[in-house]
Write a protein that binds this DNA or RNA. Structure first.
Lengths: 189, 189
DNA sequence: GTTAGCATGTAAGGAGTTACATGATTTT
DNA sequence: AAAATCATGTAACTCCTTACATGCTAAC
């Protein structure tokens, strides 16, 4: 997850770790808490050994005027293999569990992939949410008497969230199918 | 989380591991995938060493007629210390992160606690969701131009979910304050 | 008699977190 | 010159999952 998100952000532009964390915090803010440095920096190391990212060492010509020849910051950029890896991770449908944050991260980087992949991911997600929805309906209709009021309320709220998400996904799928993929920011790669 | 949920279920009635998993699956089904045996059984061990649960060895008088003198099942029951531990875990406000499943598990066992604790947990949750909501609003109003359409859509959907949850929590809090705590199943302990 | 479901467990590993530790730079 | 915030990292640990291994019981 972190690996994927880092590759996704570095795909957009080179960055150092601290900045990565900030951007991850806003990019994934809708469904995840901020990631910790204790997780971020080791992952950067790992991605570097795997050859998916490299330290940027080019002459800092376009560098901001204030911060010359700094070596406290380590700026990373994605490699060609890294871009391949990113597409591979994006295409491989994440785990089959409903509560996995994988879908959110995938969605956050939809601008970096093609319509077919987007559709596959959206439909996969819809299937999983529908399954969860059916499970909750079953519980509410079959086992309602055996459960206390709070547990029931939780299931109802969960069912509601599922129904809502399915509708949202339907809209996105329809939108994706008939026509415009909402402005792909940058058609590079 | 698992520890808390196990104590909560055994608080209601003694059970063996397999049965625990089934009940956990429905009880937590609104926000969590099924827990694995590889997690369940070691946790049962740990709870037993800690003295919070014990193996039930009483004469199986009321046992189902078909299954006599089995020792393939190990039935666990909660101890007095276990009940204390459960209340302690319920009272200690969970982590301060929005996406933590802690709230859901706490809520699922609200029937086992008192109104004051329920209110504190609901209000704590509301505060965290409100914070997340404000963060998303900030991003949407301040940084909207810098984000692609998909990322924006994700934030909008997240914001919507937050607003919805806050309203839900408000209702629950109001209901909890003015009057009836929705049928507490069993006033034991 | 074989498939399906009940029942319990272990070993290895994944994906993160917290707490700690350090130092540079910018702002007040 | 103190405080805030930028910036990077390590060690230990938490909490869970997957994959494996086993055996019993019920149903077909």
């Amino acid at each position: 997850m972190l690996e994927f998100a880092i590759l996704g952000l570095l795909h957009e532009s080179p960055m150092h770790g601290y900045e990565l964390r900030k951007q991850l915090t806003t990019k994934l803010g809708a469904f995840r808490a901020a990631i910790s440095y204790g997780s971020l920096y080791p992952t950067l190391r790992r991605l570097q050994s795997a050859g998916w990212i490299t330290e940027e060492s080019g002459a800092p010509a376009t560098d901001a005027p204030l911060l010359t020849n700094r070596r406290s910051r380590v700026v990373y950029k994605i490699t060609a293999e890294g871009k391949e890896r990113f597409q591979e991770l994006l295409s491989s449908a994440g785990p089959e569990t409903f509560d996995d944050p994988g879908f959110g991260v995938h969605f956050a980087f939809f601008a970096r992939t093609d319509q077919a992949t987007r559709l596959r991911i959206l439909e996969g997600r819809r299937r999983r949410v529908e399954e969860r929805r059916e499970g909750l309906r079953d519980v509410l209709s079959r086992a309602a008497e055996r459960l206390d009021a709070y547990t029931l309320e939780l299931q109802r709220h969960g069912l509601d969230a599922c129904e809502r998400e399915v509708r949202w996904l339907e809209e996105l799928i329809a939108h994706e199918r008939s026509g415009r993929p909402p402005q792909v920011t940058d058609p590079s790669n």
